[in-house]
């Protein structure tokens, strides 16, 4: 159903389904061990006592999604609650991508939390809650900085886009 034809009932249905995806995603993180920072650090500890089990979690999720993604887009049918698919289209590798990914990696390695597991852990852990709060501040800082830099040279082309 397209967004234009989406009435009140359809809109609440769309929210319910988004919440179900979020809850399923969260349950997946909990079951797979992603919400145990010690295991995540063990997974990143390739020079020490490496625990590769989370690699299987990741491969499993990629396998399922790779199949689903192709199947869904091949059907050439619109998503239920929107007029079109909105997936990242950029293919260029720039310095921002590399620098950003490296900064994220350092933060991930320091505590063993990335955004999804941190949000799932936040109701029961004050550390995770602090982590999420600081993460939001970090995102906000980048947004302000990109706006300031928008008038200047090459940052301007990329700064507005957060794509995946």
């Amino acid at each position: 159903m397209s967004r234009d034809a989406c009435g009140r009932r359809c809109r609440s249905m769309s929210l319910v389904l988004a919440a179900i995806s979020g809850a399923l995603f969260g349950a997946g993180l909990l079951i797979s061990g992603m919400t145990q920072p010690a295991r995540v650090i063990g997974f990143l500890d390739i020079t020490g006592r490496w625990d590769p089990s989370l690699a299987f979690v990741m491969s499993g999720a990629i396998g399922v999604y790779a199949f689903a993604y192709r199947a869904v887009l091949a059907r050439r049918v619109d998503p239920w609650f929107d007029n079109a698919f909105d997936v990242p289209k950029r293919r260029d590798v720039d310095r921002r991508l590399l620098v950003g990914a490296a900064i994220f990696g350092v933060g991930w390695g320091l505590v063993g939390l990335c955004p999804g597991p941190a949000i799932v852990s936040s109701p029961s852990s004050t550390s995770a809650l602090l982590f999420v709060a600081m993460m939001l501040i970090g995102m906000f800082v980048v947004r302000i900085a990109s706006m300031r830099l928008r008038s200047r040279s090459h940052w301007s082309q990329n700064s507005a886009e957060v794509d995946s």
């Binding site: 900064i103 991930w108 970090g138 980048v142």
Partner: peptide
């Protein structure tokens, strides 16, 4: 770590 993850995922467009 939280701050770095926030900055890094924004600049690098994803986690």
């Amino acid at each position: 770590a939280g701050l770095l993850v926030g900055i890094g995922t924004s600049v690098g467009s994803g986690c």
